[in-house]
């Protein structure tokens, strides 16, 4: 319970700082890969917060998609090209929707939570596919973003997307790390373990779940906006369909919920593997994912995070 920064988190923050400092020297493909990994990691960070509470959302693409479309619509329909505003809008829209749906979702558990979240994401998918103004299934492209009034072209644009992602990842991990040490944050594993006891301690399980669901949605929206900026294109199939949520769940399982940095590591591993599979073996990509997931479930149920935090479980001298 010391208030010193967790060593793994400190290392991660140092890595992010190095990334920001040396972004210009990274090859374009690596910048793009890392931007997408940071965006995905942000969404998965929210998902692991829910997992920590014992909840698995099979519809987190809802918030990814809301964030992406909020950013994309501002960018290409209203000409608001600023990246920071785009991310803010994504966070706001996703956060508000999560807060509202949270009143309902906070009363559901287990597979009911999983399936209801799936239903909501599919409703959004259905809406977007029929929205001709937003390009239906084709989606639409974003125009080149700016940051605080500075026009960004080509390589510069890509570098700033990466830097923005890294800064937000640092803020999110520190923020969540601190939150998990507050009384409300500490309730997460307690709720997963024993809701009855939580209520008999005088804490509201429903309220605690609602707060966590809202945070997860907010992070999903930020991740979605970052993803829209990083890719420069959005469409319902790659943002909202349930298979997107499935991928996010996969990364969350790979990550595990015991560490705030593991989601970003898992996302980086996932995006790297996806890139390799795309080049070398496109027909066995899902097969490898599935096999890896089964191995994780059977042999490393705590994910990467359980490797990261194992040391701190040992009794203090």
């Amino acid at each position: 319970m010391s208030k010193r920064l967790d060593p793994a988190l400190a290392v991660f923050l140092a890595l992010l700082a190095a990334l920001i400092a040396f972004a210009a020297w990274l090859p374009a493909w690596a910048q793009s890969l890392l931007s997408i990994a940071l965006a995905t990691g942000m969404v998965v960070l929210g998902l692991t917060l829910l997992m920590r509470t014992g909840l698995v959302s099979f519809g987190q693409s809802l918030y990814l998609c809301l964030g992406a479309y909020a950013a994309g619509i501002l960018n290409s329909k209203y000409g608001v090209t600023d990246m920071i505003i785009a991310v803010g809008a994504g966070a706001l829209v996703a956060g508000v929707v999560a807060f509202l749906l949270g009143f309902l979702m906070a009363t559901y558990r287990h597979i009911f939570f999983a399936t209801l979240s799936l239903a909501f994401s599919m409703i959004l998918y259905g809406l977007l596919v029929k929205s001709a103004d937003l390009g239906s299934t084709d989606g639409f492209n974003l125009t080149a973003p700016t940051i605080m009034g500075i026009k960004l072209e080509g390589a510069l644009s890509q570098r700033y997307k990466l830097i923005l992602g890294a800064v937000l990842a640092a803020i999110a991990t520190i923020g969540l790390w601190r939150y998990l040490r507050t009384p409300l944050g500490r309730l997460a594993p307690a709720i997963r373990d024993n809701e009855l006891r939580v209520e008999y301690m005088g804490a509201s399980v429903r309220h605690a779940v609602h707060v966590k669901y809202t945070i997860a949605g907010l992070l999903g929206g930020i991740g979605g906006a970052l993803a829209a900026l990083a890719v420069g294109h959005i469409d319902p199939d790659s943002m909202a369909y349930w298979t997107v949520s499935g991928e996010l769940v996969f990364i969350a399982v790979l990550s595990g919920s015991a560490s705030v940095i593991a989601p970003f590591l898992a996302a980086a591993v996932f995006e790297t593997l996806r890139m390799l599979a795309h080049d070398y073996s496109p027909n066995t990509w899902q097969l490898s994912l599935g096999a890896a997931m089964l191995l994780l479930i059977l042999f490393l149920p705590g994910g990467l995070a359980s490797v990261l935090v194992r040391r701190s479980r040992e009794p203090a001298p």
Binding site: M1, T182, P183, L184, R186, L187, P189, A190, R192, D193, N194, L196, R197, V198, Y200, M201, G202, A203
Partner: peptide, 25 residues
């Protein structure tokens, strides 16, 4: 006994302490 089985004894109590503190108890 209704405990938080995946948490340590210390963490169990800290969860309870945190809640009691929030409730002003």
């Amino acid at each position: 006994p209704q405990l938080y089985d995946a948490l340590s004894v210390e963490e169990n109590i800290l969860v309870a302490l945190g809640t009691a503190a929030r409730n002003g108890q």
